[in-house]
Design a protein around this nucleic acid. Structure first.
Lengths: 150, 150
DNA sequence: ATTATTTGATACTAAATTAGTATCAGTTTA
DNA sequence: TAAACTGATACTAATTTAGTATCAAATAAT
């Protein structure tokens, strides 16, 4: 049961990279190389982020993308919603005729509670917070590899 | 972002049905008809539940499957784990070489917290509890359709 | 003006996962 | 010995996810 797909994962990495040096505009190419994300795939992900208003873009030489919103105001939930749709458990809620049996419904009750919980938690994690954490780790652990904390 | 797949969904429905009348042994055919689950698909799901020890089976005429465990001791988390693997966010944790960039790692920290939360919550919901809820709803709402409470 | 660098839009392919079907062998009961 | 079952396993189809490719339009530098 994997929660984040590659779209969301890469989108978050890109947003973090953009937020690291505020105001900086980066090309998809630079981002792709810096974050090791397949270029064309990243292009499409960025286009969705642009459409959704989280980043803005500028064409031509010296163009690229930049955050359009304060990183504190972008949270993981937003990004999940863009690329994976709203947190839900089954189709039951939206296609009621499928949900003709009670067992499914009673299950749904518990599950919607958990859904809400997950949603809230992801809402609480902003890109800004991730950047802060990241910078802190960067300071503290200059010499050792982050993985060693696992 | 859908959390439960059909395997888990059907498995839970089957477990609930089996737990409704304790000690009852039901054939896959009866379950399939009662719960409106494709027969051959349910067969395979039941076989996994058997392998995992949650239900036992008896071959031949009058055979079928029955709960092997007190429904209070089967929780949703167990079932998710059987059919969808452990709750995780990305492959990062298990394939460390993929996780060569810090952004991903810092993200993981927050995300593992949420992962744990989801895991705990699903652990708290037992099949027994779902059955209790279901029976209560059955008592209270005899005349009206459950969906009307949406 | 021309060229290089960039995004916009969109079509396409490939791989993986999920959902569902089918078959045949073996067990048990009547 | 026939009917009603599960055990094991192979197969197909649909959907989702991941990734690639192409061409047009904008911008800046020369």
């Amino acid at each position: 049961m994997k929660i984040l797909n590659k779209h969301t994962d890469y989108a978050l990495r890109a947003l973090i990279a953009l937020g690291m040096n505020p105001g900086s505009r980066m090309s998809a190419k630079a981002l792709s190389e810096g974050q090791v994300i397949p270029y064309q795939f990243l292009r499409r992900i960025l286009q969705e982020l642009i459409r959704s208003g989280l980043v803005n873009s500028k064409q031509g030489v010296g163009g690229g993308v930049a955050l359009a919103v304060d990183p504190e105001r972008i949270n993981v939930r937003d990004v999940i919603e863009i690329f994976q749709g709203p947190v839900q458990v089954s189709e039951c809620m939206f296609r009621k005729q499928l949900c003709s049996n009670r067992a499914n419904c009673v299950l749904r009750h518990e599950i919607m509670r958990i859904e809400q919980l997950v949603d809230d938690e992801f809402s609480r994690v902003s890109v800004g917070k991730l950047i802060t954490d990241l910078k802190r780790v960067g300071e503290a652990g200059k010499s050792r590899h982050v993985h060693e904390t696992n």
